[in-house]
Design a protein around this nucleic acid. Structure first.
Length: 261
DNA sequence: CCGGATGTTCACCT
DNA sequence: GAGGTGAACATCCG
């Protein structure tokens, strides 16, 4: 999906253009888009007549609090984007066509003022959920402290990268943030998570936050330094070594065999 | 035509 | 129980 930076852009979009507007109707709702096959009538009853009072985010989950005590959870999958009044945020998604296609509108809220909030998602991996269990997500990546990172990784034989992608332990990092931060930190994604020295832990913590903040500042998760070289024959922009492609933690992983140890 | 893509979940192994 | 793999989901792109 969009990773933390993209979802943060969506949160800000709601904050700047979606708060205080009364919901008239849940207008289009792909039934498969309700997480856990939830009840569409229940969703309409909870949202129609309400306004959004606050937009929060935990990891990759956007949370829209209504003025009546409900929360709408938005999860964007691989290709989900949020649109308000036909204006998208500045986000560009690598693997989602920018084309406008009404059939890709999986969830639409019509406001009383005539405007719309739309989730457009070609691949349909996104989900919405009323009053989601926020406890299923770990600490938000932007709130990560060195000691919290140590707890995320402690005593685990799982690959380092697999732990970083485990949303129940650390919420927000996706495949691109993980590869970029590990590359910057000079750490092998396949290292056992529990094997990092205190110095390596501090280094990884620093680069995880710096990478995420860079992506936020530069317009998204597709702005990494490693990204252009994630292709066959691509070379490490730091030392020129041919990059290695593997599957780690179930995801395609690119790393430098020379400086990531 | 085929394979793979910023993700999550589940079944099935070891 | 922990962790890995592969599939499924659905569509586009090279």
């Amino acid at each position: 999906m969009p990773e933390l930076p993209e979802v943060e852009f969506y949160r800000r979009l709601v904050e700047s253009a979606g708060l205080g507007r009364r919901v008239a109707k849940v207008e289009a709702l792909d039934p498969r888009y309700l997480r856990g096959g939830g009840d569409a009538a229940e969703l309409s009853a909870a949202l129609e007549g309400s306004t959004f009072a606050r937009a929060r985010r935990i990891g990759k989950l956007a949370l829209l609090d209504t003025d009546r005590g409900h929360t709408l959870g938005l999860h964007f999958g691989m290709t989900g984007t949020l649109i308000i009044d036909e204006m998208s945020s500045v986000v560009s998604l690598m693997y989602s066509s920018p084309r406008l296609e009404p059939a890709w509108e999986r969830f639409v809220l019509r406001f009383v003022d005539g405007g719309r909030l739309v989730m457009r998602d070609p691949r349909r991996f996104g989900r919405i959920e009323l009053d989601p269990d926020e406890g299923r997500l770990g600490l938000d990546l932007l709130q990560l402290t060195p000691s919290a990172l140590a707890r995320v990784l402690a005593e685990s034989a799982a690959p380092l990268k697999a732990r970083l992608l485990d949303q129940a332990r650390l919420a927000g990092a996706g495949n691109l943030i993980a590869d970029e931060a590990l590359w910057r930190a000079g750490l092998d994604p396949a290292r056992p998570a529990g094997s990092l020295s205190p110095a390596e832990l501090r280094r990884l913590h620093r680069h995880l936050l710096a990478t995420t903040r860079d992506f936020l500042a530069n317009g998204g998760s597709h702005t990494g330094l490693l990204l252009p070289h994630r292709r066959r024959g691509g070379r490490c922009p730091r030392d020129g070594a041919v990059l290695q492609q593997r599957t780690v933690g179930g995801r395609t992983t690119w790393s430098c065999p020379l400086h990531q140890r």
